[in-house]
């Protein structure tokens, strides 16, 4: 475990917790793509199948449980909570995320480390995480609504990607040149999509600030 990876895990965790807290506190989820949150939950479930079979460390197991429960809580609030679900932009959150699930699953069937159920699910979760932000990106481009996408949320998402890329560079130079092209290529695609998301977030935030300025 190196500092980059630990900080990456912490900022990733904070991004999920900040969103959950925001929805819990304000009881609204306008501007948040439920589809992206459902994809994130699927990413965690598909990747953490080894939660009950392989024990790596207490940290690893605790973090997996926290990631799954907090992302499940966000989906629960947006689907089931009577007050929150009313504020979900159902008509705007129209990205066909089932296409993303199917495409990444086929990709995992073709490109994986081993053709076993666990490895195909692991590769699937890596590919899906890379594109999971797309429904949220489309929703943001369409609505420019950053009410629930707080600056902290976006900051932690960005920090998570930055630290993980530093982690991969660090591991590449210290642990030998294992072929880790699956997380590397998917990670680069994911970072590119996040950069696009940050661009539209900044545009929306800038417009909001202009709107709020006294006329």
């Amino acid at each position: 475990m190196n500092a980059f990876r630990f900080l990456g895990d912490m900022t990733h965790l904070f991004s999920v917790l900040v969103l959950l807290l925001k929805i819990y506190a304000t009881k609204t989820c306008s501007g948040v793509s439920r589809k992206t949150q459902e994809l994130y939950l699927l990413v965690f479930v598909a990747r953490y199948l080894d939660l009950f079979t392989d024990y790596i460390s207490l940290y690893n197991s605790v973090m997996k449980i926290v990631f799954i429960t907090s992302s499940a809580a966000i989906v629960w609030y947006m689907r089931r909570h009577p007050q929150v679900r009313r504020t979900y932009d159902k008509e705007q959150d129209t990205f066909r995320h089932s296409v993303l699930v199917a495409a990444t699953f086929v990709l995992a069937l073709i490109f994986n480390d081993r053709f076993t159920f666990r490895e195909i699910c692991w590769a699937f979760s890596i590919y899906l995480e890379a594109v999971a932000i797309l429904p949220q990106l489309v929703l943001l481009q369409r609505c420019r609504n950053v009410d629930n996408l707080t600056g902290q949320y976006v900051f932690f998402l960005g920090a998570y990607r930055a630290f993980y890329i530093l982690n991969w560079i660090y591991r590449y130079f210290t642990e030998g040149h294992h072929s880790r092209w699956i997380p590397w290529i998917a990670g680069l695609v994911q970072t590119g999509l996040y950069a696009d998301f940050f661009y539209y977030y900044f545009l929306s935030w800038k417009n909001n600030v202009k709107l709020e300025l006294p006329a």
């Binding site: 973090m63 990631f67 480390d113 081993r114 072929s179």
Partner: peptide
Amino acid sequence: SSKLPGHDEL
């Protein structure tokens, strides 16, 4: 399979 590179990461 957590022995495979990258599989110990979250």
